[in-house]
């Protein structure tokens, strides 16, 4: 009898978790915005829109949540834990491949900050064939591996023509010269490592995949299909407030205000470094003055999908262009 009671209680708990919990999640009044990564210069516009009141001015109560390796904004959208989020293009395309109802409403980075750092004392990489014979750092399974394999294929190089080195958080193999070129986020780690090496009289260069025709889209703002169908006005107000925050954060006239704010969120990075990071971020998010922040580069998205198909990371074409909805932002 007692056993039956336990079984009944367990079943009831499971049923209530499955069928009651979603209601409470979806019924949230405030907006949760899940970022891709921790609070740093790469999210300066997101923070600016929040702190400087752009969201509030649009009548929205937005909670900006930091991301991290264990966070996935697309999953949170489906689970109703977030209404908007930031995801990289490869995440979006993988999600579409598995039937996730995700849409892209703005592209934050026009140039992918994922680049490779190498020593100035090493022969320059002017042509992709110059990669031959080098030891190249990649994060196996990460999008830098995808980008590098695409570059190698474009150069007509086999994997055996180079040495791929498994990259971790520790940069020692690059500092020691065991690895020739090392993947970094240009506007954050790139600045830190570059400065350190410059201080040791060992200046660096950056190898930029986009310069060789490989445009692999980085962070974009995503929401659910349900959200754009049911609450298009909220989507419009949110994305416009967000992009307004980005425009203001990257305006050189607002640099001091943006840096003051960043220092509150990223206490471990000295202001001087944050300043350099902000300057580089500006060139990646708004490479030309006439290009509006948030513009979706449809051709680059299609190329990203093609790259992922070539490398068998998705099973079938997903038609990513159908998931791109710039009409809410502009």
């Amino acid at each position: 009898m007692t056993r039956h009671r336990y079984a009944a209680a367990l079943t009831a708990a499971l049923i209530s978790f499955v069928f009651v919990a979603p209601g409470t999640l979806l019924a949230a009044d405030k907006i949760n915005y899940r970022l891709k990564w921790l609070f740093n210069t790469s999210v300066v516009g997101d923070l600016y829109a929040d702190v400087q009141g752009d969201f509030a001015d649009a009548g929205l109560a937005v909670t900006v949540k930091s991301g991290g390796p264990e966070r996935d904004a697309i999953k949170e959208l489906e689970l109703g834990q977030a209404q908007f989020g930031v995801a990289s293009a490869d995440q979006v395309i993988r999600a579409l491949d598995k039937g996730a109802p995700v849409v892209v409403i703005a592209q934050l980075f026009q140039v992918n900050p994922l680049q490779w750092i190498y020593r100035q004392s090493a022969p320059p990489i002017n042509d992709l064939s110059d990669l031959k014979g080098r030891t190249i750092g990649v994060t196996f399974g990460g999008n830098d591996e995808t980008v590098m394999r695409t570059l190698l294929a474009k150069a007509g190089l086999e994997t055996s023509d180079v040495k791929l080195f498994n990259v971790r958080y520790d940069y020692t193999p690059f500092y020691r010269g065991q690895v020739d070129i090392w993947p970094v986020y240009r506007n954050t780690q790139g600045i830190v490592i570059g400065r350190k090496m410059q201080a040791d009289d060992d200046p660096v260069r950056f190898f930029i995949p986009a310069g060789f025709g490989v445009k692999f889209v980085a962070n974009s703002v995503v929401t659910s299909r349900k959200m754009i169908q049911r609450e298009p006005d909220t989507v419009r107000r949110f994305i416009r407030a967000l992009l307004c925050g980005w425009e203001k954060a990257l305006d050189p006239d607002n640099s001091e205000k943006a840096l003051d704010m960043l220092q509150q969120y990223d206490r471990d990075t000295p202001r001087e470094l944050l300043e350099a990071q902000l300057a580089i971020t500006r060139t990646l998010v708004k490479p030309t003055p006439d290009l509006a922040i948030g513009t979706i580069d449809v051709a680059a998205w299609k190329q990203t999908e093609a790259i992922m198909r070539d490398q068998k990371q998705i099973a079938q074409p997903v038609g990513v262009e159908k998931a791109l909805h710039s009409e809410f932002a502009f």
């Binding site: 499955v18 069928f19 979603p22 697309i74 999953k75 489906e78 689970l79 993988r94 999600a95 491949d97 598995k98 039937g99 996730a100 109802p101």
Partner: peptide, 9 residues
Amino acid sequence: YGLQLSNYV
């Protein structure tokens, strides 16, 4: 199936 989640989640 209770939450009608996609194969991605």
